[in-house]
């Protein structure tokens, strides 16, 4: 038996929508898109501020947050877990800053130290709680998109979709309201301070929103692929344009495409949805990387060749 079934374009495109055994396609695609939109919008600012890997750190430290919340409340109430994870995210950013400012450890090393220590604490706590070493590795690492998108009984929509939609709206509203402040403090903190914008407050606010987004996406895509959701849409968009509003539009487009095609891929290959979404996101990134109008690899090659041809022509003419 081969790893993947033979490729059939018609099946690839229609199977998720026609197969009677596959339910909730719409919800899964919407959920994937919402997760990626919420993460991607915040991620754009991370890329601008060169904090991309702080997202990585926060997504790892969610684990001890959940474990400690469980130990304290002794219940699997998701509100407690959510609060615990959120607190862990904020503590992570504070710790990184603290280590970085109070010693000569560079920021990247501080990130690495903080998140790996917290993650180790999380694994130990969970292995104590669960009584066995292998915690639900699949859920922590790959997420459970398909389960989150199940519509319970008489509800109109899956609760996860409602939650992600709310968070996406909140993130969108915050970005619209604070557009100028975020823009200026991302590009030029000194100018921002002189304009009366509190850059420090902006930074911590962004970190809180980042924790919020990462924590809510954690369940769907797992602790590591959250980084893909944070960075890939923005990175793709940054290759294609330099205007921030266009970047936001492209982020949303990228989110929809990677969610839709990712689910198709997952159905075709019979794999986890989150992994397939990341594969598609990377594919889209590579497309942008090769064919971007002004910094694509192929575009540059063509440009160089054309210039050389022109120069040769001129040399001949003279």
């Amino acid at each position: 038996m081969s790893l993947f079934p033979p490729f059939n374009l018609r099946e690839f495109l229609t199977l998720p929508w026609t197969d009677p055994f596959i339910e909730g396609t719409v919800w899964i695609v919407i959920l994937g898109a919402l997760v990626t939109i919420a993460c991607g919008l915040v991620g754009n600012y991370l890329i601008l501020r060169r904090l991309a890997l702080v997202g990585d750190a926060i997504s790892h430290s969610v684990l001890p947050g959940i474990a400690i919340a469980f130990l304290l409340s002794r219940s699997t109430n998701s509100t407690f877990m959510f609060l615990g994870a959120l607190a862990a995210g904020v503590v992570t950013t504070l710790l990184i800053e603290w280590i970085h400012k109070n010693s000569r450890i560079k920021q990247d090393a501080a990130i690495g130290i903080t998140f790996s220590t917290l993650f180790a604490i999380g694994v130990i706590l969970i292995s104590l709680v669960a009584g066995k070493v292998d915690l639900d590795a699949d859920c922590v690492l790959y997420g459970e998109m398909d389960q989150a998108a199940v519509v319970p009984g008489d509800a109109l929509a899956p609760p996860a979709v409602v939650r992600m939609a709310t968070i996406s709206l909140v993130v969108g509203a915050l970005i619209t309201l604070l557009y100028k402040e975020l823009l200026v403090s991302s590009f030029d903190p000194v100018l921002a301070t002189s304009m009366g914008i509190r850059s420090q407050a902006m930074h911590y606010g962004l970190m809180v929103v980042l924790s919020l987004v990462v924590v809510s996406a954690f369940e769907m895509v797992g602790s590591i692929m959250v980084i893909a959701m944070l960075i890939m849409p923005g990175a793709t968009a940054f290759l294609l344009t330099q205007r921030l509003p266009v970047i936001f539009a492209l982020t949303i487009l990228h989110a929809f495409l990677s969610s839709l095609l990712g689910y198709h891929l997952a159905i075709w290959a019979d794999c986890k949805t989150a992994g397939a979404m990341v594969v598609v996101a990377f594919f889209l990134f590579c497309l942008a990387w090769f064919f971007s109008p002004y910094q694509g690899i192929l575009t540059r090659l063509l440009h160089r060749r054309r210039t050389r041809a022109l120069m040769e022509l001129e040399a001949e003419a003279s």
Partner: peptide, 11 residues
């Protein structure tokens, strides 16, 4: 780094 980390891991 983030791109390579996340997409290789995803693959």
């Amino acid at each position: 780094l983030g791109i390579v980390l996340a997409s290789f891991f995803g693959i």
